[in-house]
Design a protein around this nucleic acid. Sequence first.
DNA 1: CATTTTATATACCGAACGGTATACTGATGT
DNA 2: ACATCAGTATACCGTTCGGTATATAAAATG
Lengths: 191, 191
Amino acid sequence: MDNKTLLMECAKHLFYTKGYDAVGVQEIVERAGLTKPTLYYYFGSKRGLLQEIVESRMSEFQSLMREAEAEPDIRELLYRVARAFCTYFDRDREFYMLMMALFFSARENEAYEVVHPCMVTFYDSVLRAFERAADQLGNMRGRQRQFAISFAGVVNYYLLMRFEQDPEQKREIEDGEIRELMQQFLYGVFT
Amino acid sequence: MDNKTLLMECAKHLFYTKGYDAVGVQEIVERAGLTKPTLYYYFGSKRGLLQEIVESRMSEFQSLMREAEAEPDIRELLYRVARAFCTYFDRDREFYMLMMALFFSARENEAYEVVHPCMVTFYDSVLRAFERAADQLGNMRGRQRQFAISFAGVVNYYLLMRFEQDPEQKREIEDGEIRELMQQFLYGVFT
DNA sequence: CATTTTATATACCGAACGGTATACTGATGT
DNA sequence: ACATCAGTATACCGTTCGGTATATAAAATG
């Protein structure tokens, strides 16, 4: 692994573990066995470092979503979108949790400013899916937003729970689990 | 307002706005028009300050939940629990959002250590509600945890959306909205 | 071989960090 | 009148912060 990638990996781990503001650049370069000017050579600033970490993993999410979005049937579509989120989560759990944490962090914080545009992308993908399936959901009365929010809430809290119970990622998320979750979302808790 | 309360209010606002780690004690006391030794006189440390902010608002939540939990019917119970969350949210939106942010923050962060026990309390309240209603939900096959997680996800993401659209708290959350959200949770999106 | 470019280190900057030793002030109790 | 004590301020502590000026060594380029 080249030093640039090494720095990004070390930073990601520390940001995830201790929080963006709580980690100093000194700590990052020490973990990588390098020095500060090297970090500033590649990224220009602490903010630039976070930006590159985030951007380097966004394209992967977008291609996962593009596959999922092709599905016309709403039930299958929702399953696939949830599947895309879970796959993305499984590929790098620390990164996913870091994104979640930064999304919920303070609005005026540097890290939030970097991450927010990406989270809008995530959310818009879900919202578009509901809007394209409007004809199958009856009169939604403009509830697309509420559906998208609920969907994101259910999926992300599910992943959060997964992570707390199995932070080591011993086993991947199975299709059956995702289908059950979507079943509950579509038809309620009584089924 | 006495200086202790003033410090807590200023700190809460700054922690919410900029993030716990990003705010220095100097900034807090300046906003309050006081000096550092005063802060350390009352709270002992920055951590102690956060602790008091959090603890001072927990009892209120617990009494709201205790009222809601008395309801035997699962539909009405869920509505009441959601109502309790919303009321609590409406009473002090900045505090609620601060708690959310800190709950999602890094595990090894000082702020997380302070807030985590409280969030466990929140979650356990919901979990208990589902467990007490087990007989009305058929065979849950141990899905209480999943229900509780989904419920928390739906409610918290709903409040998050509310907050983004109306951070000024111009109007309270109406019962109809909560009932609709719970309807969707109980019976799915097709209703 | 000389020159430029890329990548790294040493050593440092001023500012801000969390926290404290000490002194003062005004009210309270005796 | 005096001692006590809660509350507040001045001035300071050592450490760490994000960031940089400068040097150097290796690799690519002419």
